[in-house]
């Protein structure tokens, strides 16, 4: 234990009761509500859920990057200091130095008219008073860290000259340049082919090992979660519904949605017909009063359509939002059979 004990005790990121509301022509949309989680230093947490479940907007709220019609409430702290609701100049500094961000589509995040070197070094030169030469050296070193082939030559190329996988490596290198404590990755491999995705996942695992950067990884792919993350929070219709260590959740899901999601993965099935979750998520403008999953839930009871279930910590490592109690056999959390 060489770091100061006080700093050890405070988790890197604590999010409590996060909600995101958008004002729209057809009324208010509650995209995220009652979301809470904790991320320790060096840990990797996955936000998992289907399209529209609020994964991206949760992250945008933390970064202060919500669209103009959006508003976030709740609390979030980074290493104990408030994050949510901070003025823009404070958030900009945090985004530039302490939290790195990688989005799904590197092409939209990169400036097509600037060389890779310019994109990577601009902030180092402007905000960190590095000389051009120092900044170039740092950029080169980081490109090598993300295992880009021919790194020196890449510095002088433009984004369109790189493949999708290489552009995503550049994005990761850029996000890592200021040595952030936290890396937020929003579907970083969704646009890539499986062969290249495997390379990027391997890189992320190595970066965690070598740099100890904490990661908040947003994805709908449970295979990606298993490859990179320690813990996961499953989201449905804007809410967290189940949380716990990845290995435990994949082996013993306790929320009916997590169970249904896992059961519907084609890779896990061998029968003639695919098991499916009937129906679809609710329209965020017309959320049912009780549990949002009720209409699709095979364990739904009367109470589920009237009373919104509260988040319950079920053990030291797992939490759930559900009225239904799984039978004891599967309630033994985590222990492999």
């Amino acid at each position: 234990m060489n770091a100061a004990p006080a700093a050890q005790a405070v988790p890197l990121l604590v999010v409590h009761d996060l909600a995101v509301r958008f004002a729209t022509d057809s009324g208010p949309v509650e995209a995220v509500r009652e979301v809470g989680f904790t991320l320790e230093r060096g840990e990797a947490l996955a936000l998992v859920g289907e399209s529209g479940s609020g994964k991206t907007q949760s992250a945008m709220a933390l970064l202060g990057l919500l669209a103009d019609n959006g508003r976030a409430t709740g609390t979030a702290t980074l290493a104990g200091a408030p994050l949510l609701g901070q003025p823009e100049h404070v958030l900009r500094r945090i985004r530039g130095a302490r939290i790195g961000v990688v989005f799904q589509d590197p092409m939209t995040a990169l400036n097509p008219y600037l060389t890779i070197e310019r994109q990577m070094t601009e902030t180092l030169v402007l905000h960190r008073s590095r000389s051009r030469r120092e900044a170039r050296a740092e950029a080169l070193q980081m490109l090598e860290a993300v295992r880009i082939t021919d790194a020196r030559r890449r510095l002088d190329q433009y984004p369109h000259e790189l493949s999708g996988g290489m552009r995503q490596r550049v994005m990761i290198a850029m996000a890592l340049l200021p040595r952030p404590e936290l890396l937020i990755l929003d579907e970083p491999t969704t646009a890539l082919d499986v062969t290249v995705q495997a390379q990027i996942l391997d890189l992320l695992a190595a970066l965690r090992r070598d740099l100890g950067t904490a990661m908040l990884l947003i994805t709908h792919d449970l295979g990606v979660v298993a490859a990179v993350c320690d813990r996961m929070l499953v989201m449905y219709a804007g809410e967290g519904v189940e949380q716990g260590p990845v290995a435990e959740l994949l082996a013993h899901p306790r929320h009916p949605y997590t169970q249904g999601l896992l059961a519907s993965l084609p890779a896990r099935q061998h029968g003639a017909r695919l098991a499916t979750l009937a129906g679809q998520p609710p329209d965020p403008r017309a959320r049912p009063p009780g549990c949002a999953f009720t209409p699709r839930c095979r364990h739904a009871m009367a109470v589920c359509s009237t009373v919104h279930p509260a988040w319950t910590e079920e053990s030291a490592t797992r939490g759930r939002r559900c009225h239904w109690q799984p039978p004891e056999a599967s309630a033994a959390t985590g222990e492999a059979p």
Partner: peptide, 8 residues
Amino acid sequence: DAVPEARP
């Protein structure tokens, strides 16, 4: 082999 499995 490249497909990551959703398996602990």
